[in-house]
């Protein structure tokens, strides 16, 4: 759509490794980006009671102000699907990524890696995905297989619904 002569301009300055490390907070499904540290279910329970319960409910059941994080197993193909971490999310690594970047909502990016791992462990345990003695870290978290791991399809099959009109478009509409 846009054409140019393919030149480069030399604008901007090189990004240093330290600068990139400070901003690159994304975690990939294979665990790339996960930092050192570890957390347990029990540690996560205490952290969640302090940081998560006021919006998501005492056991992650959800409130009017924040979605449920727990439950919903077996509901996705019913009239009232409940999409939670346990019932819907396909990757455990997304839990680390999102908790770190955006939670708690009143002070995002404030948690230490071990705190984030602990919250992941607790929420996975609440959903019955990992045992009570689970420890989450950069090695164990990417290995967690989420119940709905195979629940997503792509690429997009649309257009999946359309008619073909057997009409000639008016001239005013085709210029």
């Amino acid at each position: 759509m846009f054409t140019d002569n393919g030149q480069t301009f030399g604008f901007g300055k090189p990004a240093t490794e330290a600068e990139i490390a400070g901003w690159d907070i994304a975690i990939q499904p294979d665990g790339t980006g996960l930092p050192p540290g570890s957390g347990t279910v029990k540690e996560g329970e205490a952290l969640f009671a302090r940081l998560g319960a006021k919006c998501h409910g005492a056991k992650g059941e959800g409130t009017a102000s924040a979605p449920a994080l727990v439950g919903g197993a077996g509901t996705l193909n019913t009239d009232k699907p409940l999409k939670t971490v346990g019932s819907y999310w396909p990757y455990a690594t997304t839990l680390y990524d999102f908790i770190h970047r955006a939670m708690p909502a009143d002070r995002p990016q404030s948690l230490q890696p071990s705190e984030v791992y602990a919250l992941c462990a607790y929420l996975l345990h609440l959903n019955g995905i990992v045992p009570e003695d689970a420890v989450m870290d950069a090695q164990t978290l990417p290995k967690v297989i989420m119940p709905n791991h195979a629940g997503f399809t792509s690429p997009d099959p649309r257009p999946d619904v359309f008619d073909t009109l057997d009409v000639t478009l008016p001239a005013t509409a085709t210029s």
Partner: peptide
């Protein structure tokens, strides 16, 4: 590969009656 962020898994995916969801429905 996609990062599978919260906004392209938990949100902005299109759940179908069979319980599967379409992902990366962009247009």
């Amino acid at each position: 590969a996609p990062w599978e962020t919260r906004e392209e898994t938990s949100k902005y995916t299109d759940l179908l009656p069979d319980g599967t969801a379409r992902q990366f429905t962009f247009v």
